[in-house]
Design a protein around this nucleic acid. Structure first.
Lengths: 253, 253
DNA sequence: AGTAGATTCCCATTCAACGGGAGTTCGAGT
DNA sequence: ACTCGAACTCCCGTTGAATGGGAATCTACT
């Protein structure tokens, strides 16, 4: 044994440690982290200690570990998600004020839909998406929009892999998804009734960049029985605003 | 020379690399990063390469480096700032809708005010605060509130250090700041006219936890000549909502 | 008092990380 | 076309920082 006989670099290990944290598991003991990251106990304690010293992780009074505020700060202050989010926020607020349901912003990341922001009114229903959470591309309205307006290579890659079923109504047949994508391209928006939870319908529109690809997706979660028309109209208007805001920022820089 | 003759661990270096990114400097070349982080060129290129492989940094088509989406995701999905932010967002939106000026949320971090969120209406004036940006405690309304309702040790520490002047009206005399803090405690809010920029006044209220300390600060940036009364009223109401939301979350967990 | 888990400490081993330096690529200036 | 500088890549001998098994200590719960 010596410097990483397991064949992974220090950087890899740090990432593995950070990956043990999830939206639902935000505090862990050092031993737990080690177990989940596949590190020997003594190593795990040392690595976690280093990260705490560096401020990337925080240790609370009981010795439990959580992700550090400093890491959030470093990651947030110069990241792309923040720029997109800031450009989209005013438009999202308007949508949210009018439609009064969950309003979301997602981008494409590693073949999944990554949610950058979510505004929720108290009266809106349940919603499994979370900020910094992910959903499969074929099973969410946001994902379908991102996929429909992405390059062909990505579409093939996604469709060639098994399509996970999240609810009885999730489309898992590649041919069916392909048809759905064609429909999304034709209509300029995606409607996903019950794909994730049977009680709700996702409605999404693309935010296009100048090459025509979807830079992001704006979406709203409606009850299944609600008419999607008014929300769609708001979303389309909002998408135009976001496109303008993003283009404006780019030009200025 | 060998494994870090400079005496810093790998973790330290990674943090130093991440620290070279700031809100205004979001893309750099690998060489620039190395120079700023104090790393030899070949080392810098290797370290940056590792971080890119791990997904913490992204390399664009021209070979320039920016902070990776993946880092944002890891840092955001389980961090404390996100929880506070989610609890505060609805209340902030209401303040923003009524006051129509920059509305901000800050917490105490390493003896400075760290801004977690900022909502801005298009018609509002300039504002130097940024999401994930920082301001000195004595020079911002948010900072004064955080400091006034913090423990005495922190107050002494901050006041014993030189107080930076951001504008001609920034209070830099420890005695003056001490008087100001007493006033903030008495009134339950802070007003900072022209402390940062001469044209604007910060107005802030504390979000208290059950021990009475300020868990966060809600603030609004007004033109200097605007009356602070209406904004203060909105802020106080919002702070109560946020306090309730935070307590509710804690209890549920 | 006993048990199980988390944590800290110790230390011999060793290979991954280090960085100087040489070479390559690229673009801007003349 | 040529020069110059900056950014980047590759090579390679050196070496000490990182590693992890094991034992001891410290909890907390029974």
């Amino acid at each position: 044994m010596a410097n990483s006989p397991s064949g992974d670099s220090v950087t890899d290990r740090l990432v593995r440690v950070l990956e043990t944290f999830t939206p639902t598991r935000t505090v862990q003991t050092a031993t737990e982290i080690g177990r989940r990251a596949g590190l020997p106990s003594s190593t795990a304690h040392r690595v976690v200690g280093e990260l705490v010293d560096a401020g990337l992780l925080d240790r609370d009074a009981e010795g439990r570990i959580r992700v550090g505020v400093r890491l959030w700060e470093l990651a947030t202050r110069s990241s792309l998600p923040l720029r997109v989010r800031q450009a989209a926020l005013p438009a999202m607020e308007r949508v949210q004020a009018r439609v009064r349901e969950h309003t979301q912003l997602a981008i494409l990341e590693q073949d999944e839909a990554l949610f950058l922001e979510r505004l929720s009114s108290p009266e809106a229903g349940a919603n499994i998406t979370r900020v910094a959470g992910r959903l499969p591309l074929h099973a969410s309205s946001s994902g379908l929009v991102l996929l429909a307006f992405a390059d062909a290579a990505l579409q093939e890659r996604v469709l060639s892999r098994p399509l996970r079923r999240l609810s009885p109504r999730t489309p898992t047949d590649p041919a069916a998804v392909r048809r759905k994508l064609a429909e999304v391209r034709r209509l300029g928006h995606a409607i996903a009734p019950g794909y994730i939870e049977e009680v709700s319908t996702g409605v999404a529109v693309p935010v296009r960049d100048d090459s025509g690809r979807a830079a992001a997706a704006l979406s709203v979660v409606l009850p299944v029985d609600a008419p999607p028309g008014p929300a769609l109209e708001e979303l389309h208007r909002a998408a135009r605003d976001v496109e303008r805001a993003l283009a404006g920022h780019d030009r200025r820089k």
